[in-house]
Design a protein around this nucleic acid. Sequence first.
RNA 1: GGAUCCAUAGCUCAGUUGGCUAGAGCGCACGAUUCACAUUCGUGAGGUCACAGGUUCAAGCCCUGUUGGAUCCACCA
Length: 853
Amino acid sequence: MKFSKAYEPNQYEPDIYALWEKSGAFAPTNKKNAKNYTIVMPPPNANGNLHIGHGLTIALEDILTRYHRLKGDNTWYIPGADHAGFETWVVYERRLEAAGKTRFDYNRDELYDQVWNFVHEQRGNMELQLRALGASCDWDHLTFTLDQKVVDTVYDTFEKFWKEGLIYRGKKLVNFCTKHQTAFADIEVTHKDEQGKLWQIAYPLANPKAELEEIIVSTTRPETLLGDTAVAVSPKDKRYAEVIGEKVKLPLTNREIEIIADEHADPEFGTGVVKITPAHDPNDYEVGQRHNLDMITVIGFDGKMTKEAGANYEGLTTADARQKVLGDLEDQGLLRGEERIVHSVGHCYKCDTVIEPLLKEQWFVDVKPLAKKAIETLEANKIKFHPANKKRVLINYLKNLKDWNISRQIPWGIPIPAFQNVDDPTDWIFDKRVDQQEIKKNGKTYRRDEDTFDTWFSSGQWPVILTNEKKQHYPTSVMETGADLLFQWVGRMIMLGLYNTGDVPFEEVYMHGMVLDEKGQKMSKSKGNVINPIEMVSKYGSDALRLGLIASRSAGVNQAFSSSKVIASRNLCNKLWNVSRLIQDMVDNAEEQSNEIKIDNYGEDWICREITKTNKEIQKLLEKYRFAEAGDAIYDLIWNKYADWFLEGEKLWKDTALLKKTLEQILIMLHPFAPFVTETIWQTLSWTEGMVMTQTWPESLPFDAKRAAKFEELISIVTNIRSHFQSLPGAGSYPVAFYDDKLIYDNQLLIQHYTKAPAVPEIKPEDAKGLHLAIAGHPNIYLEIPEDIHAKYKANLEDRIMKLGQEINTLEARLRNPNYVEKAPKELVEETKSQLETKSKLLADMKAEFELV
RNA sequence: GGAUCCAUAGCUCAGUUGGCUAGAGCGCACGAUUCACAUUCGUGAGGUCACAGGUUCAAGCCCUGUUGGAUCCACCA
């Protein structure tokens, strides 16, 4: 291959990925004295497309993976594909609807097969996209969340729970979406503040007293009145103390219900009386439990009033029933007022339907013991979090966690392996024969539970499942995922991982924030501000997207996407491409080919020092998950140091052995961040062998620190001269004359090359003329400029003298402070002193010059 | 009600045991240019680090409070 003039990512990326994949190097090695490094990928939706957040996830995980592979670890990055239970079901149900069908036209097994086929028709796109992003994951172990090994583990866990009594079947209030016909966990419900009304309704006492004939309750949901089984007052509320235990006539029905005393009633709120509807309100449910109240279900799973609501209301929607109830109350003179209030209402996170708390028999996990263990583990710092504060947030959540409803009434998921005795509804058994609707056991007939597991129940066991085959990779090294999944996923993986294995599922957690659009807004389809990562890849290249995404981003913080960072990264790739092109050119044209490195000028010492310094810095930063800073460090090395200074100088020296070596090191160090361009270059260079992906992380390069420091002096001299050339009228360049300066003498050619000065002559002190440069340590440099330009320079010099004077004042003030001299570290004080000395000398030179000019 | 995060250059953001003159990319201004790269090179302007106190020899960083923005959890008859 030859280097074209510019790097065109699209031209190379697919072939490069194919090269890697074919090589087998994505599979974990099994070296004896190497550490294991494992990341399980949060599985993207199997039949969806990746979004920009996946771009970030893959970038971060793949940087870590490739870095550790280069470091020689037994590195294993395991990909996954999610059946995404509810998400996918919603999509499929929409298709059914479009075809004029509903889920009720089929039985569960038929629906499961249909969705299975649907998903597998759509599948594969996501996996291609992961490849386009450069994920160096082990495709041989790609796991779909409905694969048999997943189901096996989930069933084993369920059975173990069952035997230990951690699973129970309970009829409790669940969050039910009447559109999607399924229950949700608490965490899946989105609460929104809404404008609503609070109505006052009179409940007449069964035995009216002279001073109290009726009590007035306040409610936002009058239609649930039909299911009231008590009214509650605070036990401390003196107004009602006498009527506790008495009955009231429930309006619109002919029932009488009791007045009970319960803490739930707040004397300060409204009239201090609460109607109690245990079947339709979570708080009332608890009151009902405490007082052993009846539970009357007046709203059905279809969102309509039931038979129990009475003939007048049966079949009405809750909204219609509300109007009718209000009208009827009004007719009877029992409606006593209304006021507007803002209250929070739960909605289905997919379809926005109001979530109805309904009584339903479901499987619940008793989370107390699991959460307790998780909290202990977290408090013992067994898992390190980035950002660190997420640990406390998670502990706080776990402390208040309620039992977890794991039943979902959707066909797309892992069937719950539980069967119910057809003759005895209380008799449930555990059995794995879920492919049958009815089974026989001990002469009894059992019918399968139609429900499936909450997907978080299975994905909560993800690290355990994926490492099952190579147990030495558990616990995994780091769990990298979005900050929004702290509770529903990370927390559950910790609980279930500990339960399954006794050990944590991962040693560290890194949580990234959301990728917002360029204006800092959340991306959403409805807003139309979604950025497609694959479009970015085809426009700028995969490496540019990766580098651009990690730039300026820190753990846990939501940050805007920045196309300018992507473009800057694209430019970096091109820069490196051209650097390589130049070096290849020098190698091709070199008179002798030698692999022996001879460091014989300051710039070479300097670049060896800088590469080594950056090498250590990148390692340190990646260990701390500081991706953005690591990216900056390598960017700075390649562009500002390697290309702008070292390579520019090497145009004169052409030490090909050193050029090769340094370029190789840079390619390896950049590889985790920009895998495609580094590999493309590696494959294109004439002398490199194998793949950059499977090289070894570079060792330190040899250098002489004093000589490297000399080069830095040269840099500041050159910069100073360039600055003068720019600011002097005419913006020309002039001879740089000097005397008695070894550094300049030794580097005349280089200085001429960097500054583009016409000459760098050595002169006799008495011949010095022109503009005297004030550079610390180099007092004898003159720009030979015409007389008339001097005056302009004088003003500039005056400014610099003033500035320097201020700096000297600061230093002097610091040293005058006895506390500073005594308490600050000695090195620091010494440094201040030496700085003061240098600067004072410089100031004296400048002042002398000012007089001369 | 409880909690968390954020506020630094025109924009997006770094700045992690407190240390000297607060950085980057983009943008802006000025200049260059056949010879690796216009996806280029060079030079430069631009910041009372939200505000008010405090701790310290020393504060963008630590503490207290205030203001503004974002998010999460719980509750809301």
